[in-house]
């Protein structure tokens, strides 16, 4: 029910100021999503959407950093494994 998935904004329709709509690609499937509450969201941005509505913008920098932190975790564990073997 609360499932919301990340998609990339392809275009934004500003013609109705009360109902800002965007075409959003979810892995190639295009859907019309309301982006009324994300005034700063534009083309190329990733948003997270649910029930036809954009909930929030995805912070790509944050995602990159946290994935990098995982990589670090991986590295330190890899090193440990290696030292276990040695």
């Amino acid at each position: 029910m609360c499932l919301a998935v990340p998609g990339k904004i392809i275009s934004v329709d500003e013609s109705n100021p009360d109902l800002r709509m965007a075409k959003v690609s979810f892995g190639g499937i295009i859907k019309e999503i309301c982006v009324q509450w994300l005034p700063e969201a534009g083309v190329e941005d990733y948003i997270i959407a649910h029930a036809g509505m954009a909930l929030n913008k995805l912070d790509e920098e944050d995602a990159r950093l946290s994935l990098e932190a995982f990589e670090q975790l991986e590295k330190s564990l890899d090193e440990e494994e290696e030292s276990d073997i040695n």
Partner: peptide, 15 residues
């Protein structure tokens, strides 16, 4: 729905 879905439903009423 929870708070996730409530804004969509609220917007429908406003619209």
């Amino acid at each position: 729905g929870f708070e996730t879905t409530a804004p969509a439903n609220a917007l429908s009423v406003v619209e």
